[in-house]
Amino acid sequence: MLSIKNLHANIESKEILKGINLEVKAGEVHAIMGPNGSGKSTLASVLAGRELFTVTEGKVTYQGKDLFELSPEERASEGIFLGFQYPIEIPGVSMVNFMKTAVNEQRKHRGLEPLSSSDFLKLMREKKELVELDSNLTNRSVNEGFSGGEKKRNEIFQMAMLEPKLAILDETDSGLDIDALRIVANGVNKLKSPYNASIVITHYQRLLDYIVPDFVHVLYDGKIIRSGGKELAFELEEKGYDWLKKGIVV
C-alpha cells in the first residue's frame, strides 16, 4: 500500500528526515516511536503533503502512485488520513459544513454523487456514536473551544466519517487521560479491516496497550534505527531509547 524509500526532507534547509525506509501493507498496524525531535511528526506531515517541508531525496509510492505527484486534497481523497497532533481551530466554519464539504469533495473525486443532507446527517449520527463524541460538538465551529481530549476525539470522528485506507495518527494519544485514550483506541480498532492500514505515531508505549501493532519502528535522528514486533515496544518501555542510540554508529 505504502512504500517509503530513502526519504529525505528539509525544513528551512535543515534536514529532518535522513533516509527513511518503510513498507506498509493492507491490514497492518505500524507503530512509530521515538524521542522528541526525532522526525516523527515531520514524517506524518510529509506524507500528508504539508508544503512547509521540502523533500530532497527518495520516493514514496502509495497504491502504485507517486505520492509527491498528488496535492494534499488528492492524497486525502485517495484515502490518506492524517490525525493531527495539534488539531486546528477554525472559527466560523461549522463542523457540519466542514465534514459535509470534505465527504462530498472526496466522493466527487471518486466519481460518486454527493450525499443528500439526510444521508449525511445519518452518517454523522452513526459515526458520532462510534467514537462517543458529544453531539453538541458537531454543532460548533471546527475544534473551536474544544478541550484537548475533545479535539483528539474529533480527529477520530473525522477518520470514521472519511473511512481512509491509510490512517496516520500523529500522537493522537498525547494529552489524553485513560478514558479518552480508551475511546480513541476503540475508534481506531473498530475501523480496522484487512483492507486498510494505520501508522500510529506515539511517544508512549501505553497507547499500544489498546492498539496492538503488528510492527514497531524506532525513529531517531531522522532514521528508523530499529524495527520489530510489538515486543519491541515493551523493551523500549523498560529500557528507554538510550540502549538503541548507543548502538548507532554516527
Binding site: E73, R75, A76, S77, E105, Q106, V142, Q158
Partner: peptide, 8 residues
C-alpha cells in the same frame, strides 16, 4: 492545510 488534508 487542515481542510486540504480532509480532501477539501
Amino acid at each position: 492545510f487542515y481542510m486540504r488534508a480532509r480532501g477539501i
